[in-house]
Amino acid sequence: MISNVTKLKFIALAAKYGVQVEHFVPGEVVISIATWRRHKTNFFQLMDDLRNDPNIYSITFDETTGFVYISYDHSSLNNKATINNWLHIFKRYSF
């Protein structure tokens, strides 16, 4: 399970980059990033980087709604190294 400190890191990153969680169930999350159009190149590179993670099964983006659909291995939330890797990936990009 994700620690409270890690949850706060994710929330801080989300707020910083204008990410809003639209839907969440274990193994699936739908987010929107308000600024994606202004940072299109970085946004698509971020999705590509996340797709390379073996714990993420799929990422689909709907340009009409601005929603990103992410399917992932829910048990990976128990792995601190995986969480830190995801945080590191997000920190590389500034939206």
Rank of each mutant, 00 (worst) to 15 (best):
R38F: 14
W86I: 13
F90I: 05
S58Y: 11
F95W: 09
V5N: 15
N52M: 06
N78A: 11
F43S: 09
V68D: 01
D53E: 08
T35P: 14
I11N: 07
M47I: 15
M47P: 09
T82A: 13
F44N: 08
H23F: 14
L87M: 08
K9G: 01
M47H: 05
N85W: 11
D49Y: 00
S32E: 02
M47D: 00
F10R: 02
K40Y: 15
T82E: 15
H23E: 12
T82W: 15
S3M: 04
F43G: 13
V30G: 04
V21W: 08
W86D: 02
P26R: 10
W36Q: 09
V68Y: 03
I70D: 02
V30N: 06
H23G: 02
A14Q: 03
S76P: 03
I83H: 09
S75A: 14
R92G: 02
K16V: 01
A81E: 14
S3G: 05
V19Q: 11
Y69W: 11
L87A: 05
T41D: 14
E22F: 04
N85Y: 14
W36C: 07
R92F: 02
V5P: 10
G27W: 00
S76V: 02
P54D: 04
N78V: 02
M1A: 07
R37L: 07
Y17F: 07
L46R: 11
S75N: 09
N55S: 09
H23M: 14
T64Q: 12
G66N: 08
D62E: 04
N79Y: 06
S32A: 05
A12E: 13
F90G: 02
Y72R: 03
Y57H: 11
V30C: 08
H88K: 08
S3T: 08
L50R: 14
I70Y: 00
I59F: 12
K40H: 14
E28Y: 10
H23W: 08
N79M: 06
R37N: 04
R38H: 13
F44D: 04
D49V: 00
F24M: 04
I83V: 15
F61T: 10
Y69Q: 07
I70V: 08
S58K: 15
Y72I: 03
R51S: 06
V29C: 09
V29Q: 03
N42M: 10
I83G: 06
I59R: 09
D48P: 00
M47W: 06
D62M: 01
T82V: 15
N79R: 12
N78G: 11
V30S: 08
I59N: 10
H39V: 10
F61P: 15
N55L: 01
M47S: 03
R51H: 04
M1L: 03
N79F: 02
S3C: 04
V29K: 02
V19E: 15
Y57C: 01
K80H: 13
I89W: 05
D49K: 01
T6Q: 15
T60K: 07
Y72Q: 03
Y57F: 09
L77W: 01
Y69R: 13
N78D: 04
Y72W: 01
